[in-house]
Design a protein around this nucleic acid. Sequence first.
DNA 1: AGGTCGTCTTAATCTATATCAATACTTTTT
DNA 2: AAAAAGTATTGATATAGATTAAGACGACCT
Lengths: 201, 201
Amino acid sequence: MGIYMTDATSIQPLLDYFNRLIPLSVEEKDLIKSKFHAHLFLKKQFALQHGDVCEYFTFVVRGCMRLYMVDDKGVYHIMQFATENYWILDLTSFHKKIPARLNIDALEDTVVLRITHSDLIDLYLKAPKFDRIFRVLLENHFMHQQQRMTQLFSSTAEERYQLFLETYPHLLNRLSQVQIAAYLGVTPEFLSRIRSRMAKG
Amino acid sequence: MGIYMTDATSIQPLLDYFNRLIPLSVEEKDLIKSKFHAHLFLKKQFALQHGDVCEYFTFVVRGCMRLYMVDDKGVYHIMQFATENYWILDLTSFHKKIPARLNIDALEDTVVLRITHSDLIDLYLKAPKFDRIFRVLLENHFMHQQQRMTQLFSSTAEERYQLFLETYPHLLNRLSQVQIAAYLGVTPEFLSRIRSRMAKG
DNA sequence: AGGTCGTCTTAATCTATATCAATACTTTTT
DNA sequence: AAAAAGTATTGATATAGATTAAGACGACCT
């Protein structure tokens, strides 16, 4: 059941991703190849644990990870899932080099491409185009997060579940109800109730 | 009660702000002077109304504005306040040029410096350093928002109020309880109860 | 000066969601 | 194959916070 890959094949999705934002030169592509490194996480394996410093800016090539916090009562709150072509990291910990308040782990066997903080700074220095690329990337990330926040703020659990179904239909079968509930901000019991209510109503 | 200013005095806080992020050359300072324009909003005046496209990336020099949404039931949810040296805009509307889902208005007479979308693009082209400056600025904005989201997600209204008091002590006297309640995501009645509970307990 | 409007408080009742508990079923581990 | 752990459901009860309503105080119109 092992996942086999060569660097040549695994870097391609990231090159495609960047190229779609802003077309890259050959030199820039080579820079990416030298700075980003592939890594495999097995299901349940941690990429970041609360208290450690987040060392990597991480791109998911294949699989699924979650970014989440555990509150004082031990309840899990999932900020974000990351599947194919999404980014995942604790940005605050990464940039300020302070202990992370968030955790990241794999919900499936997951292949990522990741870059360290110092290599990213070096990338910015060697090719300023990456300042622009990461600016655009952050804009997108921010817009996603803001939409999620307005939603959490102003809708009922049922509305949030409906929107989840519309926005991430492909995730429904990949995630357990426990994970979806932790993303919506409700208990699994209540999500179960919502589903049975929707099935009838 | 009018506010008098010259361009020379009013642009300075923005130059200082940028200069603190990344030192600027004289040419870059001149670019800023030519691209950002001062504007005064009187109390209660709108800077952006739901349905319009957000035309400006806005920096608050003096005063206080709020970024908020109104939900289906007519309830106000404040995403963010912006006082001196903060940015305020509906980023999604601004970048995608689609109708805004958020509103912005002034809670006090407020002086801002703002730049249009096309002038910002032009700024990026003329001085790539601004790609970096706005990348850093967005990182900061994102970190703020993420902290707010984890908070909304995982704490009680009382804990959120406590944290508000610690984080924004200077805002307590500038905002009515109605505004603070809309920021915390509770009704003003319940906030009143929290306060009396805290005063006793 | 009087009226209207916004602000804050307090009380009674209501509701969305949490908690606790029991059961059945499936998957993983040993 | 048995044991253990995770997954989903359903019911009874509890609770954080909403809703509705009323009264008191102050600010701003005209």
